[in-house]
Design a protein around this nucleic acid. Structure first.
Length: 265
DNA sequence: GCCACGTCCTTACACATCCG
DNA sequence: CGGATGTGTAAGGACGTGGC
């Protein structure tokens, strides 16, 4: 694919994904801005976002955090300092999206997806930069109130409940594996949030529902994890935490989906 | 030795301007 | 008018450097 087409395809994929998450996306008129889109946060902040294509190399996701210009004197390179707030890196090979603050790196960055041959303290694990882990970003530029990825928070949640589990160390269809007395349960971890009195989450579009047994949705606002069977909904489901304005028979009460109430063992 | 990071380079394309 | 040249943007490969 030609480079411009690839860039356009990346932009289209990211915008489609943001819209699927019901986020407000604006596209600047003309092509004189250094950011690609403007995204509104739930607290009505407008963030300038530059969309980048990432590619896999040696087990890491690479992308360029600078623009290049050629003139009579040769190549010049300009970073986006002050011109954008965040980068959204989309990796077509993984069909995954990552959110990185402009201040978090210089001219480039690598996000590790595979285990390195030698462990390093400075490794940036791709999992920790996943869009769904970091959205919405805090006003001070850091990712979320609790910077740990949802998988980490869920791990702590399960440990507090004496549930033995194993984490997927490579890109797998499932995130956690729980070996119970009778069977092995595969969990796909998702980040939930409270909106209009309901807990919402966007299941990862790349997740093969046949390869997991439960979606384990962790909501920081309620400090609670919820189990949702992949067969219980088609494209989305919301779990009611507050009383609705009008009582309806089809309400999915969050209480009934709480981990303790559904965990089979 | 392995890693993240920075720099340089090539390739590709779009568009504006210059000049014969 | 149309080809040549310059400018600008982007993808992505290669390699050097310094830290751990």
């Amino acid at each position: 694919m030609k480079s411009h087409e690839r860039g356009d395809a990346t932009e289209a994929a990211v915008i489609a994904e943001l819209k699927r998450r019901c986020l407000s996306v604006s596209i600047p008129f003309g092509d004189n801005e250094r950011y690609d889109i403007v995204v509104a946060t739930p607290d009505d902040r407008l963030l300038r976002v530059q969309i980048k294509t990432g590619w896999i190399r040696d087990g890491t996701i690479e992308f360029h955090g600078k623009s290049q210009h050629t003139n009579s004197t040769g190549n010049t390179y300009t970073n986006y300092e002050g011109d954008v707030d965040y980068f959204v890196v989309y990796v077509p090979d993984l069909d995954s999206m990552y959110l990185i603050g402009e201040s978090e790196f210089g001219t480039g960055m690598q996000l590790r997806v595979d285990d390195p041959e030698q462990s390093h303290e400075t490794i940036h694990w791709a999992e920790e930069y996943r869009f769904e882990e970091r959205w919405p970003p805090r006003p001070d530029g850091s990712a979320t109130a609790d910077d740990r990825p949802t998988v980490e928070r869920v791990s702590e949640y399960l440990r507090q409940r004496d549930v033995d589990f194993a984490r997927a160390v490579t890109i797998s269809e499932y995130d956690l594996l729980v070996d119970t007395a009778e069977t092995v349960v595969r969990l796909g971890v998702e980040t939930g949030w409270v909106e209009d009195g309901r807990i919402r989450f966007h299941p990862n579009s790349s997740t093969d529902r046949d390869s997991i047994d439960w979606f384990l949705v962790y909501c920081a606002e309620t400090s609670q994890a919820y189990l949702v069977d992949p067969d219980e909904f088609d494209t989305s489901i919301s779990l009611r935490v507050d009383d609705p304005d009008t009582e309806m028979p089809s309400i999915n009460w969050a209480k009934e989906y709480e981990f303790e109430n559904r965990w089979p063992h």
